[in-house]
Write a protein that binds this DNA or RNA. Structure first.
Length: 572
RNA sequence: GCGCCCGUAGCUCAAUCGGAUAGAGCAUCGGCCUUCUAAGCCGAGGGUUGCAGGUUCGAUUCCUGCCGGGCGUACCA
């Protein structure tokens, strides 16, 4: 049940009856409490089209409005319609939501959705720049699965290419003991290999040779490569596990897995007549892409040296996702600098017939991560902050806070709470911001535990659970009626019933901050209710009603946080 | 040069097909713990939404032009 949709439908129908056919109702939650619960803003636009007085039209709309859920409606300002809902109706709906596993959310038509996220480069350890794609992608996955979709996680890791030459050449000259120690820290390994390459020309030449041998299928090189990749994957998995990310080895779709498909891709594009040779490279030129000086900009499918750039693997991946996985939708959670690349990938794929009108392949870009000096973190400078270290730091800071706030907890409780709170805060810091804007990496901002942060939401949850513990009441088996009289009760009930609206808004453009914003507001409203409305000391009927209200709040908070990949604890 | 993105309070960010008085957090200041966890609540101050026009009953939102910043722009990913 979606309050907004219900009201919108009713107002749209009333508009039609009033003579304004086809005009949108533009219903949204009231901007201010005095304007009721919802407001319809569409009348003014409709009146203009009809050449009518907007307040007059509003009166006619109200007259034919069939909305029994409304306690009252009024015309305000130039022609707004303010709608006050009936508290008894809200209470009834809330009772229904409480017994609904979907918490009021309707399941859309089931789709197969590929979510492409995280995708670290296996040559290095995961760094802070991977936090956004990983946290956002995992939230999209959880939300989509909750809505009942068939979700396919894809971790398109980089495990192939020239960069591995140096690593393999370096690996090959280490003895067994050194190999073990060196691989413990891939960051250092990468740096040592790079240092060797720039200090020793002979090594650099050997590194280039290793690339050729690797691509040629040389057994020794492949074995070294396997060793390295295996180690790197384990590093990634350890980070995912630490951060409670749902990716597993089964979700890996490494670049190298498309190697065999690339010559086939070239042949297919050639047969379709869209492949052009230019300066020795095989390209697809599309009119909509212009480079410098208005020259046509190619999508390079095969380089002049015979190598395949990521345009090729990404096209092969599109084919795989449509033809083998039968994806209705694919969401690429990849940084904004690659916007043009994906425009090209999708355009070429359409031109080649790999994508049709019905399939929705979308790049979900996110802003650059910047250093405190405002410059971009560059992947190959070798001085990045490790994601694993950020996670550890978050848990350490949370641990100090937990110990200070609640010193009587057992050590194991402190461990568990600090893990959930620390990781939650780190993820929430990313999820709660608009995806598209750049942001500056700062420990204090990212690991803040005050204000609009995960711990605030988690704390709201523990307060509710604590009430039930004190009451000695089992939340699930509690029975009784909800009665909404106090304004804080009504406000809380209203917010709880808007959970479906929040989720719907999130899936429109996969902006996780919409869900964060909803949960933060819900928590704020709950906190106010909690301060204003005594629960345990109230008379029996009120106490039961308020406990039921609390129970719905707890369920939605837990579920909502869960959809963000953030856990809850019973006490903090 | 061209293309895309961005510019909102001191800082970090919101603002749901254009809606009523642009909202939060942090920081600052003032209240609230013998009462369900103070990681909290209540309140105050803080704004020419980069600038200038335009469309509109109404613009942070749409259009045009400037200013400032970022990214991209043929063989790295």
């Amino acid at each position: 049940m979606n309050l907004k949709t219900t009201i919108d439908d009713a107002v749209t129908k009333a508009l039609r009856k009033a003579g304004a056919k086809g005009s949108p109702a533009v219903v949204k939650p009231a901007a201010r409490a005095e304007f009721g619960h919802y407001q319809a803003n569409g009348v003014m636009g409709a009146a203009k089209k009809l050449g009518m007085n907007p307040r007059e039209l509003a009166a006619r709309v109200i007259e034919s409005l069939d909305l029994p859920q409304a306690a009252s409606t009024e015309i305000a300002g130039p022609g707004f319609i303010n709608i006050h809902l009936d508290p008894a109706y809200l209470a009834e709906e809330l009772a229904r939501v409480r017994r609904d596993a979907m918490l009021g959310v309707a399941r859309p038509a089931r789709q197969t959705i590929v979510v492409d996220y995280s995708a670290p480069n296996l040559a290095k350890e995961m760094h802070i720049g991977h936090l956004r794609t990983t946290a956002i992608g995992d939230a999209i996955v959880r939300i989509s699965e909750f809505l009942g979709h068939n979700v396919i996680r894809v971790n398109h890791v980089g495990d192939w290419g020239a960069q591995f030459g140096r690593l393999l050449a370096y690996l090959d000259e280490l003895d067994a003991v050194d190999t073990t120690t060196e691989l413990k820290d891939l960051e250092k390994f990468y740096q040592h290999a790079s240092a060797r390459a720039s200090a020793d020309p002979a090594f650099a030449a050997r590194a280039r040779e290793y690339v050729v041998r690797l691509q040629g299928g040389d057994a020794r090189c492949l074995a070294l490569w396997q060793t390295f990749i295996e180690t790197s994957i384990n590093h990634c998995q350890a980070v995912y596990d630490k951060m409670d990310i749902t990716l597993t080895r089964a979700d890996l779709a490494p670049e190298s897995s498309y190697n065999d498909k690339l010559p086939v891709l070239i042949e297919d594009l050639r047969q379709k007549g869209i492949l052009v040779e230019s300066d020795g490279a095989l390209c697809v030129f599309l009119d909509e892409f212009k480079g410098k000086d208005g020259k046509p900009l190619p999508a390079i499918i095969r380089k002049s040296d015979g190598g395949y750039p990521y345009m090729a693997t990404d096209l092969a991946a599109v084919q795989h996702r449509t033809q083998t996985l039968h994806a209705d939708k694919a969401l690429y959670v990849v940084g904004a600098p690659q916007t043009l690349h994906f425009q090209q990938v999708f355009a070429v794929a359409r031109a080649a017939g790999y994508l049709d009108e019905k399939t929705d392949f979308r790049h979900l870009p996110f802003g650059n991560i910047l250093r405190p000096d405002g410059k971009m973190f560059k992947t190959r400078e070798g001085a990045d902050v490790k994601l694993s270290d950020v996670a550890d730091e978050a848990v350490t800071r949370a641990r100090e806070l937990v110990a200070a706030k609640n010193p009587d907890l057992s050590d194991s409780d402190k461990d568990e709470i600090s893990r959930v709170v620390g990781i939650g805060a780190m993820k929430y810091a990313e999820l709660s911001k608009n995806r598209t804007t750049d942001y500056i990496f700062d420990w204090n901002t990212m690991l803040s535990f005050e204000g609009n942060t995960a711990p605030y939401l988690q704390y709201a949850y523990t307060r509710i659970r604590s009430v039930f513990k004190r009451a000695g009441v089992d939340a699930d088996s509690l029975e009784g009626d909800i009665t909404l009289t106090h304004e804080n009760e009504i406000a809380l009930a209203m917010k709880l019933l808007q959970f479906p609206e929040a989720l719907e808004a999130v899936t429109e453009d996969y902006q996780s901050n919409v869900l964060c914003g909803y949960l933060y507001e819900l928590s704020g409203i709950f906190m106010a209710f909690y301060e204003q409305c005594p629960i345990l000391k109230a008379d029996d009927a009120t106490r039961t009603s308020r406990l039921l209200l609390c129970d719905v709040a707890a369920k939605i908070l837990k579920q909502g946080l869960g959809l963000l990949g953030i856990s809850t604890v019973e006490q903090m």
